[in-house]
Design a protein around this nucleic acid. Structure first.
Lengths: 267, 267
DNA sequence: AGTATCTGTCTTGTATAGAGTACATGCGTC
DNA sequence: GACGCATGTACTCTATACAAGACAGATACT
């Protein structure tokens, strides 16, 4: 069926589906871009600016925003003519939590962990092929080691990333991880093979520790939460100072693994 | 399927913009319907059934769902070929909470109230013209008087409804409230004029009590939260047994009003 | 007053997204 | 193994949603 029956030579068929975000984009896609943009900027924005930001025509943006505001997914922010997320999204989000035992219990457990250990603790998941901090609890240290909830970070930068990818085919991993993802914030470059090796090791031993990857002062301890035997659904992790003693680290890892096991669904 | 495909005389073009959800609906609208449907059913559903439920063509539904799943707004639910809300919606919802002081503090206050009083407590807001329970905390009574978060109830059935509409024009109120909304669950019928009178009174005294409206066994105490002088942004309310003594009721109202005032933005 | 740059609404043409339909596959049940 | 009834994908046609641009009002600075 694929064979081009006639014309339609698609002169531009080169780039797969990256679409230069050019003309005549589908309305739904524009909306998805808008939501994603608001998520990354974390602030209300004027409609005109929004149009520029997502590279959409102004007129289109006005009609889409109007629809979304009417539906309650967006709200006009207090001061004037800016928009941000609306109550409906909060309600839908609560529905998600209610329907999702793991998230509900995971949040709880992460809050407990950070209270008991005093360290920053996080619940992490894969979110359409990206590493995502789903919930994070700050810890009590004077210097804060915190990352915003919903932040997306390249998989190779994290201990959790190594656990979340356990059990995936090499090919799948390869196209989840871009070249850029392998370059650490300090400019060092990981080798894909090393990363894949890490994943295998992490999957084998059932935990993972990384030191000084995202920044030079912290290490990250992570343990996997299973939704079925062999299937890593999430991780919980602790972010601790890089000079934490080996002994203390071991204790924390043991604790983490115990909690993670408790969260797992033991098929 | 529906009617004669022939000339399509648009026999349904009567109703203003209610659109009989007929043919060639905009993709975004279909998506909004899908989300709303999932919110009301609170469970995962197969794509075929979803198509029927929102009265959309199957092929269209498949493509829309695929987009939404790719974007992470929906997820394929564990067991097989069903969809429900996805992580992205949770993240967006958390963004909303973060950007919204009132909601954050209001949740807290409602949780406190129900712990301290032992009664069911709720935070309520207008949500695109409908009364919505935004957050609810169960209370400790053996018989539970609880309504799910996100539930939408006709405005005239509630004490909060009377407060939330304070300050609106009569005309605005009239078209927020449908005929059906004036019929209580037990079949009794309110008069629109009485309701509007109630609103004026509630706005004047700064609280509202209704007895036996939603059911015969409870009364509802509510106090307004202001986002600006005169502008009611939300209410907090307590649901108590209808035979609660006058004295105790008065105490609870005083407490409620104090908390509500604390939540208000004193312009 | 004059110019510049916003915002929000409206109209018009056409590229295209959605509807319809067909088909392949899977899974029951008789 | 023939039938009914699901799911998921692929195709073609056309009604229409999107883009472009004009417009009126606001605000601001010269």
């Amino acid at each position: 069926m694929q064979d081009g029956n006639a014309l339609a030579v698609r002169p531009d068929a080169g780039l797969d589906e990256d679409r230069a975000s050019g003309s005549r984009e589908k309305g739904l896609n524009r909306v998805l871009q808008i939501l994603e943009f608001l998520h990354t900027t974390q602030r209300a924005i004027g409609i005109g600016d929004l149009a520029k930001a997502v590279n959409a025509p102004r007129s289109t943006t006005y009609t889409l925003v109007r629809s979304l505001v009417d539906a309650g997914l967006l709200e006009m922010a207090g001061d004037g003519n800016r928009v941000y997320f609306g109550k409906k999204l909060y309600l839908y989000g609560m529905d998600y939590v209610r329907g999702n035992d793991l998230l509900r219990r995971g949040r709880q457990e992460v809050d407990n962990l950070s209270r008991e250990t005093g360290e920053t603790s996080e619940l992490c998941m894969l979110q359409s092929g990206r590493y995502t901090i789903v919930h994070s609890s700050p810890g009590t240290r004077p210097f804060r080691i915190s990352s915003a909830t919903g932040l997306q970070i390249p998989l190779p930068w994290t201990a959790s990333g190594r656990l979340l990818l356990a059990g995936f085919e090499r090919a799948v991993i390869e196209d989840m991880v871009s070249e850029d993802d392998l370059v650490l914030p300090d400019g060092r470059r990981l080798l894909l093979d090393d990363f894949i090796e890490d994943i295998a090791v992490a999957g084998g031993v059932g935990y993972c520790v990384t030191s000084g990857l995202v920044d030079a002062y912290t290490k990250c301890l992570a343990a996997p939460v299973f939704s079925a035997p062999g299937k890593v659904e999430a991780t919980i992790c602790l972010v601790v100072p890089i000079d934490t003693s080996g002994e203390k680290t071991d204790d924390l890892i043991a604790m983490l693994r115990e909690r993670a096991a408790r969260l797992s669904i033991t098929g």
